[in-house]
Write a protein that binds this DNA or RNA. Sequence first.
DNA 1: CGTACATATACTCACAATGAGCATAAGCTG
DNA 2: CAGCTTATGCTCATTGTGAGTATATGTACG
Lengths: 333, 333
Amino acid sequence: MGEETPVVVGLNAVIVAVTRESPRILTITASRRGPAGSGRDPTWVDGDVLPYGPLDPAADRTLELALRGWVAEQTGLEVGYVEQLYTFGDREREGTRAGGVPRVISVAYLALVREKPPPDTSRARWRDWYTFFPWEDRRNGPPKLVAETIRPALEAWVSEAPAALARRERLERAGIAFGLSGSAWDPDRVLERYELLYEVGLVWESVRDRGRSETPDRATVLGRPMNADHRRILATGLGRLRGKLRYRPVVFELLPPSFTLTQLQRVVEALVGIRLHKQNFRRLVGRGGLVEGTGEIDADTGGRPAELYRFRREVLRERRAPGVGLPGVAARS
Amino acid sequence: MGEETPVVVGLNAVIVAVTRESPRILTITASRRGPAGSGRDPTWVDGDVLPYGPLDPAADRTLELALRGWVAEQTGLEVGYVEQLYTFGDREREGTRAGGVPRVISVAYLALVREKPPPDTSRARWRDWYTFFPWEDRRNGPPKLVAETIRPALEAWVSEAPAALARRERLERAGIAFGLSGSAWDPDRVLERYELLYEVGLVWESVRDRGRSETPDRATVLGRPMNADHRRILATGLGRLRGKLRYRPVVFELLPPSFTLTQLQRVVEALVGIRLHKQNFRRLVGRGGLVEGTGEIDADTGGRPAELYRFRREVLRERRAPGVGLPGVAARS
DNA sequence: CGTACATATACTCACAATGAGCATAAGCTG
DNA sequence: CAGCTTATGCTCATTGTGAGTATATGTACG
């Protein structure tokens, strides 16, 4: 059965680093198979892709090893923390769509790198992830984008529903995803929001996938797009990372060995996209035993010098779910 | 590159149901490729496997659809809730080990089925999952197994470590996994525990994979084994399900539409493997808005009749993480 | 030198959630 | 009716959370 259609396993990586207050992911500028400037905005056509490498079924012993291998090769980065995200295998994926010969199965990984060495490969490049998901950054309050563009579009989409029941369901769904009409904003629902916007037609990819009849209008479309379904993979990664922060001390994979508490807080805020109460945050990480002070002082704060802290590895033994403590979330004792 | 080694994508399912107080998974008695009774205990050799179906790369549009398809076909079950678990692709997997031609990539899914219709296929069968992981059931306190067998074996393994540093690491790891020496027992760490036991050599699979020289001794080996790495997949599924209970109302996928609070509690306890405080449990699900009373009464309790409840779907909008509330875990508001 | 400013750090307080237990209600059996 | 079983209601100490006030210790600049 199906011996004729070969299967190719691809490995995608969402490689995350945080510089100052900016969370970044590594992207590759795609080399386009067809001619570049074919009428569309070339920026969109030669879109970004996530770093990608195929699995060599004969040579690679392990998926994760294969991933680490080609990431090191392609980007020169030694990734530390690696976690498998999700496996995507829909046939609709661009590039495999219309009778394309091989069936592509993509296994996506999340990788965290500590420092931010500039990628030495010419085509690799760090980008702030909020350029792909501008609606996800609420550190300065809910972005205007949501009130001005997304919300009206969602309301239109809700009222366009054929039946009353479908209308209710759409209303519900939009409310949960974007924290409207009484629901709270849940930072983890990145994928849900992206998929909703895709369905509503507010992202470039949905216009692209609907067929070539419509010309995607850059103005009505939100965030920087990516090729194929890579933005969906990226959304999966961000959601997973945000969730993981709550119950695993993964932030420290993104920080230098010693840091001030404010630095730590800024990184968490950058990832989660919201601001945190400073005093409570430090109480939480301190009393929770997540960090311990080194005696050293960082005088480069602009105000009173801050003590430098380091991650306490022992916390893994002591606490049940040593996350960083986010609002609305009890730090499980 | 690697065009010669074909790739086969397999789909495995951990199909879970709960009957009374017994959590069950659907297993298939493997039809063995080689001759059956070749010296080893035939029960072990013709071990259980998880339900499995290959992906047809030409026909199947989606991984999840493919899964639903062959599960329905093979077992006659209509699964409701489905969630992708993990993708396993190590080459060491049994059956693909020694120069086997195709490379097998297994995408594992977790599926929850509400009732427990007896599988109509002859080779399919429900088994209590604690027969595979007897150390995971702590509803009657920590099982003797842990104190009598696992703990001593772990201690021996710790002291066998070559260096002092390795000894510390092993001690730490064993402590975290099994809740020894001050650490708390974390129900979610199912995979961690299984992999530790595998490494220590306490499960049949590790003896099997070490080579054929040692004859696996059934007495010194814990839990019912499975073929290939299916028990590892199963452990992944259980851990994920236990974790998910905390922040998503998935239990209700396993319960009839209406139920008493005690029934609900019993199911949760069966899954998580620990007993819960009755009054607090009902306070949590009640005040959390997770359930609402139907007016009806179930008189079949043996004592005072209990009110029947149903799941409140609206809770998805209202609460942040509507799980069932487990000890040591704050129900996130 | 001193004042404004910026940041770090300490402490308080109201409130909600949790863990544990006691008390009462409402069926059944004999 | 007594005694058993299970359901259900309520209390209470403890802990965690959200928010705010107060103080310490640097720098920049007049």
